[in-house]
Amino acid sequence: MVRISVDTGTCVGAAQCVLAAEELFDQDDDGIVTLLNANPEGEAVKAARVAAESCPSRSITLHED
C-alpha cells in the first residue's frame, strides 16, 4: 500500500503535482496543494511518484506501508 502525505506549509504552488496526477492533487483558492486521494492504486501510484519527484519544494511524501 502506498499512502501520500503533503506539506501545505512548504508548498510553493508550482502545481507540478496537478500536472502529473490531477486525480490525486488539486490546488485550493490560494494555490496551495490539496490531496484528493491519499491512497492511490495501480497506475495512479506511478503518477504519484512522478508528482513527488517533480515537486520543487519536496512537499509530497509517499509512505510505503
Binding site: V12, G13, A15, V18, Q27, D30, G31, I32
Partner: peptide, 12 residues
C-alpha cells in the same frame, strides 16, 4: 511575496 501571487497562476 510568492504566496501572495500563487493564486494568480493556479492551473485553474
Amino acid at each position: 511575496l510568492r504566496k501572495a501571487l500563487i493564486s494568480e497562476f493556479t492551473i485553474r
